[in-house]
Amino acid sequence: MNHAFLDKYSNLNSLIHKLDPRTKIITFLLFIVFVITSAPTDYIQFLSYSVIILTVVFLSKVPLGYVFKRVLVIIPFVLLVAIFLPFANKGQEGWIIFGNVMIKSILAVLATIMLSSTTKFHKLLKGFELLKFPKILIMILSFMYRYVFILVDEAQRMERARDSRYFGGEYLRQIKIICNIIGLLFIRAYERGERVYQSMSARGFDGNIITMSKLAYTKIDIYFYIIFIGIIMIIKIWSLF
C-alpha cells in the first residue's frame, strides 16, 4: 500500500481540518457556484474570491507546493481552449473567454483541493450521506474507496512485471498484454466481490452499513458558516451595483 497520496494531508491539525464535513461541502459548493456565475470581466470579484480561497489555503496548512502541483490538472483543457483561440476570430473577445475560463477553473480547483485534502474520504461520504445524497451511491462509493487501493496495487504489480520483461516491440502485442492485465484484473475484482459479499452476508449484511462515527457541528462551524457565507454574499451583492 503506497497510496498515501490520496488523502495525504487529511491528518494535519488546522482550523479547516476541524470543520464538520457538511460545513465544508456546503460552503465549497456555494463558493464554486458563486465563482462560475460571475461576469467574465468582473476582475474585482475574481480578486476577492482569490483572496478568500488563498486565506483558506493558508489556514489549512497544506503545503503550497502540493496545492500548486494539483492545480496543474486543468492545463490540458486550458490548452484546448487556447488552441482554438485563433480559429474563433473574435480578437479581444477570444482572450476574454480564455482569461475567464482560466481564472474560474483555477479558483474552483483550489476549492476542490481544499475540500479533499483536509477531509478524510469516509468522513466526506458521511457528510454527503447526512446531506441526503442517495444512500446506494454512497455505499458504492465507500466500497469503491475501500478496494481501489488493492486493485491499483494489483494493476501496478502486473504493470511492473510487464515492464521488467518487455523491451519494446510490436504495437499489437503491447495492446494484447495490457488487455490480459485488464482482463485478469476484472476477474480478480469480480471474484473478490463475490467473496466479500458472502462474508458480509455471513455476518448479517442486509443492505445497510452501520457506522460508529457521528458528525456534530461545533462552534467553529457556526462561525465559519457566518463569516464565509457572509463575505461571499457581500461580494456578490456588491458586484450587482
Binding site: I136, M139, I140, L141, S142, F143, M144, Y145, R146, Y147, V148, I150, L151, V152, E154, A155, I182, L185, F186, A189, Y190, R192, G193, E194, V196, Y197, M200, G207
Partner: peptide
C-alpha cells in the same frame, strides 16, 4: 452493492 463498488474500483484502476 459490494460488486458494483469493486467493479467501479476496477474501472478506476484500469
Amino acid at each position: 452493492i459490494p460488486m458494483m463498488g469493486i467493479t467501479a474500483a476496477f474501472i478506476f484502476a484500469a
